[in-house]
């Protein structure tokens, strides 16, 4: 079967397509299925892309930083901090290490305890921010050295809680992709049903076409073109609605830190526009198969 050119897809092929009578019900079913499925696909896509972004943010940004916490009696804190910085300065894989100032620590605690917390009067541990270089350091080796020289130091390399989150994000992303596949399959199935019903309803038309010398190919094409055309425009409609809904989502706040909105960013906006051609392709294959099967059966 000849492949459909995009031009034929968009304007149909009036002369040959008219041999199949317009069928309101299957037309609406196809249009609806394609629109609804594409609408859902936009969100599955946005979800996959957003979690992908999330996972890479977490693994990229957080992998490069970790925290050293020094809990010691107030009079030893300054000395232990100094010692810890010494150790870090001589540890391979550590690019920078910096003790957080009081103000910074207060800012970190503020969301939990409010601005009026008297940080000065509380025995708050000193935090040291460690930035890794590209190689990264060996957390176990560092822990051993710290245990010997800075008894009050606890290394939190973030990996402990970051890894499950990155893994979860990865899972959500695969679920999103799986959803996309399922959505495509359901759309294909619905359009196949619609095409089967149209073919069955038009058995008489097919008989007449055969009597005047139509090949299977000609008959199949008339149906396939019609369904592909409808699926394409249905998908365009669904995509439009999906994008509108995404745009209407409240913007995720920049201060949300690593939390990120469901919306699309940058060139990711291109992806939804891939959906209508994909829907047309799914419909083309589904109806092509249905038509060939049905025409064999009606022989």
């Amino acid at each position: 079967m000849k492949l459909l050119s995009p031009a034929v897809l968009l304007r149909g092929e009036p002369q040959a397509d008219r041999v199949v009578p317009p069928t309101g019900f299957t037309a609406r079913l196809t249009l609806f299925a394609a629109a609804a499925m594409t609408f859902l696909a936009v969100f599955a896509l946005a979800l996959s892309l957003a979690t992908g972004r999330l996972a890479s943010n977490w693994s990229e940004e957080l992998a490069r930083s970790s925290t050293l916490r020094i809990s010691a009696p107030a009079e030893q804190i300054a000395a232990q901090t100094e010692a810890a910085l010494q150790v870090l300065a001589t540890t391979g894989g550590v690019a920078r290490a910096r003790a957080l100032s009081r103000e910074e620590q207060q800012a970190l605690l503020e969301p939990w305890f409010g601005p009026d917390l008297p940080v000065d009067s509380l025995p708050i541990p000193q935090l040291i921010e460690i930035i890794e270089d590209a190689q990264g350091y060996d957390p176990d080796g560092l822990r051993l050295r710290l245990a010997a020289e800075v008894p009050g130091a606890v290394l939190d390399d973030h990996g402990r809680w970051r890894r499950p989150l990155v893994k979860a994000a990865g899972r959500i992303r695969s679920l999103g992709l799986l959803s996309l596949l399922l959505i495509g399959a359901v759309m294909g199935a619905m359009i196949t049903l619609a095409a089967n019903s149209a073919l069955a309803a038009n058995a008489q038309v097919i008989a007449v076409l055969r009597l005047v010398g139509a090949r299977d190919d000609f008959i199949a094409r008339a149906f396939v073109r019609r369904f592909t055309f409808r699926a394409f425009w249905g998908a365009v409609l669904g995509m439009g609605l999906g994008l509108a809904a995404l745009l209407a989502l409240p913007e995720a706040q920049a201060e949300g830190g690593f939390l990120t909105g469901l919306g699309l960013r940058g060139w990711h906006w291109v992806w939804p526009f891939v959906l209508p051609p994909v829907a047309a392709m799914v419909s083309f294959l589904a109806t092509g198969g249905a038509a060939r099967r049905m025409l064999r059966r009606l022989a």
């Binding site: 055969r210 009597l211 005047v212 010398g213 090949r215 299977d216 190919d217 025409l295 022989a299």
Partner: peptide, 14 residues
């Protein structure tokens, strides 16, 4: 096959 039958129908007016 069905395609050949279709060709025949073009040469036989019924």
């Amino acid at each position: 096959d069905r395609d050949e039958i279709a060709e025949i129908r073009r040469r036989v007016g019924v």
